[in-house]
Simulated assay, not measured.
Amino acid sequence: MDPKSTYWLEIKLLGNTKKVRKDVHCFCFDKVVDSDTTTLKDLVDEITNQYPPGYLEIANVQYYDADFKTVLVQV
């Protein structure tokens, strides 16, 4: 992995707000991603294989930029 193209991502998985426990808002984990070899679809597929969505749930991805405080990509 090239250090110039490697990123440390903080990923938060949110569940259905009607079914989620009240004391847990989201599930967080960190992941190292190489932008030269990973596409967004590969990243989403890898996460959904590791943490599969429940029955009738669809995985949505949003990229939040903390500097600009905006959601830049929504898949």
Rank of each mutant, 00 (worst) to 15 (best):
V61F: 00
F68T: 03
D67A: 15
V20M: 13
K19E: 11
V44S: 01
L56G: 04
P53V: 14
W8P: 01
D30C: 07
V20P: 01
V33E: 08
P3M: 10
C26M: 01
I47T: 03
V61E: 00
D30P: 00
L56T: 06
D34M: 09
K19F: 06
L13Q: 04
D36R: 14
G15D: 03
T39L: 03
L56Q: 09
Q50G: 07
W8V: 12
D42L: 12
A59R: 14
Y51D: 00
Y7K: 03
L40E: 09
V44W: 02
D42R: 06
A59M: 08
C28D: 05
I58Q: 07
N60C: 09
V24M: 05
K19V: 11
V44R: 01
V33R: 05
Y64L: 08
D30M: 13
L14D: 09
E46C: 06
N16E: 15
E57T: 12
Y55G: 01
T48K: 07
K41T: 07
K31Y: 07
V33Q: 03
K22N: 11
T6L: 15
E46A: 15
Q62S: 12
V44K: 01
V20A: 06
I58W: 02
A66M: 14
L40G: 08
Y55Q: 05
D65M: 07
N16A: 09
F68L: 04
Q50F: 11
I58Y: 07
